[in-house]
Structure formats: C-alpha cells, structure tokens
Design a protein around this nucleic acid. Structure first.
Lengths: 220, 220
DNA sequence: TGCCGGATGACAGGTTCCCGACAGCTTCGG
DNA sequence: CCGAAGCTGTCGGGAACCTGTCATCCGGCA
C-alpha cells in the first residue's frame, strides 16, 4: 500500500510517516504543494494524507485538480479545528475523511485502516486463497492454520498480488508499489521477492505464475 | 488495444506512435481531419489521441460528430498551452482528458494507461471467438477454458488479428504493427508467427486463413 | 511440370528469469 | 555499546524460453 503524506510541518510529517510505516505501508512525504501536485500527476497512491494549510498553496486546489484528472486514491484531510468550512469544502471536492488537529496517531491509524478497507473493496477483511488466509485489516497472514510472519517487502508483494489476483502484475508495477522515492527497486530485486515468497507458499501448494515479459500472476 | 492517433505533425505523430507501440498497442496514424472523420465512422478504437489544431479542419468538430454518432472510445486531446478555450470546449464535447503541448512522452503514456484503465472498468474487455477468449486488459488468453500462455509476439499478432477479425490483414501491416522502431520484421518472420499461432489454436479448431498474395484472415 | 508464395523444422543467438551466495543494513536484546 | 539475527538488495551463473534466419518442403496455379 502506497501512501503520500503532504505536510509542511516536518515533525508532524515524521510522526505520521513512522506511524504508517509501522503499519507496513510504503510512505512518501512531501512538504509543499507544488511538489505534491507534480507527484500526483505522475505516480499512483492508495491513500493521500493532506494538510490543507500549506504555505503558499491551497490544499483544496490540489485535491480538486487531482480528482479532475481522474485520481482515485482515498484522501484524508488534516485541518485545524477552527476551519470547519474547509472541511465541508474538502468533502465536496472529493476528500473521503478528515481529521482535526491536533489528533492522536492512534486515531490516524484507525482512519487510515478504515479508508483502505473501504477502497480495496474487500468485502470481508479476510481473503482465502487455497490454504492461505490474508487478513487485510489485522495485516496478518496464515498458511494452513499456522500464522506466517512475512518480512515487510514480501508482505507488501503478497498484498499486491492478492488485491490483483487473477491478473498479471508487471514487475514495474510491483517495483512502483513497493518503492518510496528515495529508493528504487531493481527488476532483479522484484524477482528475488517473488522467489522468496514462492518458497514460503510452496508448502501450501500455492504458486505464483510467471508470465514471461509481462509479469507475475497469482491465481484466484 | 487499438489506438488512433490524429496528428498532422509527422515527427510528433511518429514519436507518439512508437511510444504507444512500445506499450503493446496497435496504433494507426492519420494526418488530416477528413481522413480521421472517415475512419472513425468505419472502424472501432479503444482510444483516440487527437490534436485539435489540424490544418483546414477543426478537431472539435470531429470529436463532436464522433460522440453524436455514438462513439464510445476514450479521447485524449492534444492542444497548445494557450488555447484554454479549446480545452474547456473539448471536455464539454466529450473528451476524457487533455494534454498541453509540449509534453513528455512519459506523461502521455501515463495518461493513456489511466484512460484505458478507466474505460475497462465500464466495459467487459473480453472478446470471444469460438472457444477462444481474449482479454486485452488483463493480457490473458484462454482456449477451451484453459489459460493459454502466449509469447509476446504471438500475443500481439493475435490481438491484431482479433481486432480486425473478418478482415484480411496484410503481411506488411502485421510486420508494421509488431515492429519496434529498432528492428524491422521480415515477411518470413510473419509467416513463422502465423505458423506458431496456428499450431496453438488448432486444438480449439480455430483457423487463420491464408489469402494468397494479400495476407491473413481470422474468421469472426 | 515449373514457378512462386507460403509453411515449417532446426538451430543459433538473445533475452528473461531463477536462485544461491554474499554483504550492507536494521533491529533488538543484553 | 556490542553482537546476533533477520531483512534487503546486488551479483552472476545457469536454465528456460523467445525470436528470427536458413533451408527445405508443400501446394496452388499457369
């Protein structure tokens, strides 16, 4: 799950970032509106956490443009307690939830979880594929009844493959969805995650198929 | 995926065409409005990339007529940065996105991808020919219920034949549509792809007919 | 029958993928 | 603050597979 945090207050951005990282998300942070605007045109995220009070830029503008361009990510707005008006406008312009500052990080986590659940269209939080059970809410995996501890990268990869089960997911898509922008992921690395994940899933007879030249595929 | 590019500037048309071809699309290019008008009446596309500034013809007129006739493809319009008015009119008349010149080809690719994804959400992308089911979005083919893994070249060839099912496709057209700009494809190579594809499809009793001297034909 | 376009087997690169080995990094317990 | 354990990603050899040329064969047509 990729999340973009748009927040100019470095300390707050840091706190949010680490809270979300703890939830096994791939988090990118930008501190000003112009940058956010550019990034939102070129990259995809599952969720955007945006402060409306950006210096020299209106968060609502960014949101509006994002939606006009067809952006489909969930958007969670952060706003000061007294700017109620902003909240209303934000929801009009396509935000999905808001949080008034100051807020507790635990509260943020809960909202994020809720939004992601809503987005993913997972009817029940648990998805079973063969002997594999993937719980998108608790972010737990179990295999043949045994809990399975996955390293972050493998967990994210599995999540991506499951959310697109039955479809081919390209190596590039995988790399994009696992990366934050300070670190690129080589195609070779993707192959490696696949290899490691396969090894773990082999016991339950679940296989990730290679589609040469296109990517990988987890059968439904 | 079939794409029509309407662009009079040959250099630009070429660049766009090869960028899209690299994305494994079947691309047709026309350089003037009259021709575009005719083609849009007679053939179907998944996406149309159209420059509004066509010599002696208004792209907006073409777009308007296309929508009036029930054309449902996604439309991406290209326009100079200063003609804001055109952009607005374009969106009013049924364009789905616009891009201001000059633009980066990477940007174009992203927009195209987004539009095609959006489109596929509304339509079933699956095409069935006999026991063959072809899903161009998921890039999957199945034959008598069994998934069929096709090498890239054969997949593209099949996609082309299917998109022109019932029509004769010349060897030259095939070569053009499969070629990346780095290397040309010999007629003999085309024969070979046909041969290989036939072998795979034989089991389902689907045949590619040879029309001597003209090309090949996939019956509807 | 001879010609010519097309079909196809064989084969030689070339590309893509897999995965073992290894080293840098992070985390965590003491 | 140190060391152990686990995570992450690079490297590279080898396997599997794809691609396109050559050569040969086939079959329609004059």
């Amino acid at each position: 799950m990729r999340i973009l945090v748009v927040e100019d207050n470095a300390a707050l951005a840091d706190g949010i970032s680490s809270a979300l990282t703890r939830m096994e998300m791939a988090v990118d942070v930008v501190g000003d509106g112009t940058e956010a605007d550019v990034i939102l045109r070129t990259q995809e995220f599952n969720l955007i956490v945006m402060d409306l009070n950006l210096p020299g830029y209106d968060g609502l503008d960014i949101l509006k443009r994002y939606r006009q361009n067809g952006g489909k990510a969930q958007v969670l707005i952060l706003t000061a307690r007294d700017t109620l008006n902003d909240r209303v406008k934000g929801l009009d312009l396509g935000a999905d939830d808001y949080l008034t500052k100051p807020f507790d990080l635990v509260e943020l986590e809960a909202r994020v979880r809720a939004l992601l659940r809503r987005q993913s269209g997972f009817k029940s939080p648990e998805i079973a594929i063969g002997a594999l059970i993937f719980d998108s809410v608790a972010r737990r995996v179990s295999l043949m009844g045994e809990p399975l501890d996955l390293p972050r990268r493998e967990f994210c990869l599995l999540e991506l493959l499951i959310s697109r089960a039955g479809q081919v997911v390209s190596k590039e898509q995988i790399a994009d969805s696992l990366a934050n922008f300070d670190q690129d992921i080589s195609p070779n690395a993707v192959e490696l995650y696949i290899s490691r994940l396969r090894k773990r899933l082999a016991a339950a007879n679940i296989s990730i198929k290679t589609v040469r030249g296109l990517g990988y595929l987890l059968e439904k």
